[in-house]
Design a protein around this nucleic acid. Structure first.
Lengths: 152, 152
DNA sequence: CACAATTAAATTGCATACAATTTATGTGGT
DNA sequence: ACCACATAAATTGTATGCAATTTAATTGTG
């Protein structure tokens, strides 16, 4: 069968995604180091700055992460005094995540990060928006199909 | 400062990438399970099926991975008899990775995977190629800038 | 030739990811 | 009330990622 083009690394959308996501994430390192947080902690905070007081379950749906990843991550952020985790009195199975004052305050310092990172790429705002849209579409598409029949 | 649109999760290209890469990777699970390999092992094999007998360093450049990730991964693949790792007699610092017969044979079984995965998306081949191209461009762009002055 | 600087892997330590299982809690039907 | 089933976190185990350090080998220079 010779050289199967279908199996070439540079023909794989999955590898382009995998490599690109990691390289772009690395751009955030220097800025996040200043705040003392990791990239995953950063996106978790982004979600919370947008909507606070949410159950772990909902946060997981938003971030596409499960409790196996979120539980230790949220405990870490709690130990850093950026948020609190309390059982929901209405439903003791659920844990509600709430930002502390420190957690909310960090938003001010994070506000400049997106611009700083954009400046390190040659993409125009339009190109960024377009690419982002395509990725969101694909993510939703893939996620929906892998949850066929599920409700999450 | 109210609702800062710049910090909204859905406005972040980085999060779109991060989420999409993980969701797409999950599509490979069932197929890779049949081969008994993980996703990272799969892309490593893709690189080796394309070009065998390469130093770890070169493989790392190709995959955007460093020895901290590759060393244990390659040892695992070696323990699975899919490849061998030998010091380069010309330069004992370097380790050359070579597929075994088993490793080469696995390519046949992997050949159907890309098509199978594509079928689970609603993207046309043209859309896939376009998206892939944009991601490769961005990856190269970002990587080049973060290596400013470096030679790798 | 000596030796400082480089370089390639390996190692160490920390933080994810995620499947699978477990634990605790809630819910619906009888 | 009882209980099978469902649900949310937490836990467990494995495999990454990656920065930083260490070890071994090579190279450039005087």
């Amino acid at each position: 069968m010779e050289n199967n083009a279908l199996l070439e690394l540079d023909n794989q959308l999955c590898f382009a995604l995998y490599a690109c996501a990691r390289e772009v994430t690395k751009l955030y390192r220097p800025f996040l180091d200043e705040l003392g947080i990791t990239y995953t902690q950063y996106v978790t905070l982004l979600a919370l700055w947008e909507k606070d007081e949410v159950p772990v379950k909902e946060l997981g749906r938003r971030l596409y992460l499960d409790s196996g990843t979120l539980t230790p991550l949220l405990k870490k952020l709690e130990s850093m005094k950026l948020l609190r985790r309390d059982r929901d009195p209405q439903d003791e199975r659920s844990v509600i995540v709430r930002l502390t004052d420190d957690g909310r305050a960090l938003k001010e310092r994070a506000a400049v990060i997106p611009e700083r990172v954009f400046c390190q790429t040659s993409l125009s705002p339009e190109e960024i928006a377009s690419l982002r849209g395509q990725l969101q579409q694909l993510t939703a598409d893939v996620h929906t199909r892998s949850c066929e029949g599920s409700r999450d």
